[in-house]
Design a protein around this nucleic acid. Sequence first.
DNA 1: ATATAATATGACGTTAACGTCATGTTTGCA
DNA 2: TGCAAACATGACGTTAACGTCATATTATAT
Lengths: 128, 128
Amino acid sequence: MNRMRIGDLTERAGVTQRTVRYYESIGLLPSGEREGNGHHYYTEETVARLRKIDQLKKVGLSLEEIRDVIELYFTDTSGVLPKRKVLGILRQHLDDTDQKLEALGQFRSDLQSHIERFEQWLEANDSD
Amino acid sequence: MNRMRIGDLTERAGVTQRTVRYYESIGLLPSGEREGNGHHYYTEETVARLRKIDQLKKVGLSLEEIRDVIELYFTDTSGVLPKRKVLGILRQHLDDTDQKLEALGQFRSDLQSHIERFEQWLEANDSD
DNA sequence: ATATAATATGACGTTAACGTCATGTTTGCA
DNA sequence: TGCAAACATGACGTTAACGTCATATTATAT
């Protein structure tokens, strides 16, 4: 299905219409083509874009940060982008990501040991 | 320095007074003991607690989620806590954490390949 | 040709996590 | 003792990322 309206788009992408319009309003999503009437039309790529945005949100990026990198996934970057600047941004993101990964790893191991402690306690005391 | 007022506390923990009072107001931080005057007094543990909260925020937890687990770091959990319930919460957090770790890992490798692509482009075209 | 459903646009509301005054009391130092 | 610096409390403001009407126009099924 290529060339859909906002109803199908949101259903397939798992977001609300409000979200789509909000993303368009902040320039995160290109606002779909409009026919003579006022309606917007979207494509498969829009669906993919919304899904990618969702993934990046789960990674902890803000919509503004996502705007920094989203184009990399959907445009032919061999084109016009100011390479050095983008490269700088990417390296910054890589740094941030490594920080987060470390913190998350630490948290995970903390969780693990807490869990084990509780499990052992419960094992030792079968009296609930 | 054990037994300080909010000024020293915030300086050592790297947060604002507003933050401390906000955390107290939502029950994330035990509000320091008060003398006859109205002033609150804090200890080294409060500093540690604030730092731990900051770490957990970086991991992407909300203050509410942090409230779920913060006690594990600072109280003798051999005590009164409803073990099975806490264990459930912890396991949920562990699951969430693993999800995040995977997403972050994916993002990191995406970043890597994008970066490499840009680097190679810049290498090939020394004409900026 | 209508009634119902889908879409567009605008405006106001909401939650989290604080920021920023304003005002009044307490403390610490000359 | 006087006075600036520190603290307490209350209230209103702010940003991100949408939610929730309200209203008007367009599309679609009968």
